[in-house]
Write a protein that binds this DNA or RNA. Structure first.
Ligand SMILES: [Zn+2]
Ligand SMILES: [Zn+2]
Ligand SMILES: [Zn+2]
Ligand SMILES: [Zn+2]
Lengths: 133, 133
DNA sequence: CTTGACCCTGTAGCGGCTCCAGGGTTCATG
DNA sequence: CATGAACCCTGGAGCCGCTACAGGGTCAAG
């Protein structure tokens, strides 16, 4: 196992996370502060890479930073039950389903308005639908 | 037509918009500043009610404040063509469809993780899927 | 020695509100 | 007339999750 420290730029590339975002994660204590070179440059190790990839996967799945904090602390206690993770997933899945339902209703309304071409504003059903109470 | 001025609280009730939000809309010049009583209380008229309802309908449809600004200025020129409104709706509909597609993919991933019950973190497929690269 | 790529800190901004502190006003009741 | 509740005012901070500076320092190649 090689464990030679890497710079923030390399960590960004390996994890697919923006440098500014990495520093932000450090500030909000989501990613632990790494060692520094004498010049003050951050030096990350494999643990950081793994942790940041975990965070990124979680964000890609739409979990909030707080949820990810919980998932990370779960991941650090392998002997404990995983019910907390399950509840997080279930709750988030419900969020996502609600959002999809809301957006689908919206899509329907917008489709009803689309392609109102060649009119003048006075006869425009888009503007009409916004004015009508 | 009665046009007796109303307070911000009444405007909030008639339009379904929070008082703080109304003041915010005034600050960003989305709603024109109303008259004031000698004591400095805002006094709205029917025009404000109509305009704020327009704004709210637009927000409910998911339009950005900037888009609503455009729609409002269109609505004020009834003799002009409504192609701008049409393009706004089409663009926003595309946004909404993209979001639905993204969320649907997400839903699929989350459904694949859900109901991982009764395990211990070490065997949890939720945590696993976040750790795996 | 200079250039350019990288790194640092600290702060401000995005959208669209929402909430708060710390006051002033108005009106009905006692 | 005093008191209280319900309303109103301003200005500023906070929410989320970044992102974008400004204004510097560091390091290796040519
Ligand atoms: Zn969620
Ligand atoms: Zn039209
Ligand atoms: Zn849109
Ligand atoms: Zn599990």
């Amino acid at each position: 196992m090689k464990n030679s420290p890497i710079s923030i730029g390399q960590l960004g590339k390996r994890s697919g996370v923006n440098i500014e975002t990495i520093r932000y994660y450090e500030k909000i204590a989501l990613l632990p502060p790494p060692d520094r070179t004498p010049a003050g440059y951050r030096q990350y190790d494999d643990g950081h890479v793994r942790r940041l990839r975990f965070i990124r996967r979680g964000r890609d799945l739409g979990f909030s930073v707080e949820a990810i904090r919980t998932l990370l602390s779960l991941a650090e206690h392998p002997d404990q039950p995983c019910g907390g993770a399950d509840r997080l997933v279930a709750g988030h899945l419900a969020d996502v389903e609600r959002k999809i339902a809301d957006l689908s209703r919206l899509r329907g309304e917008l489709q009803g308005l689309a392609n109102c071409c060649g009119h003048v504003v006075a006869e425009c059903r888009i503007i009409d639908s916004l004015i009508a109470d």
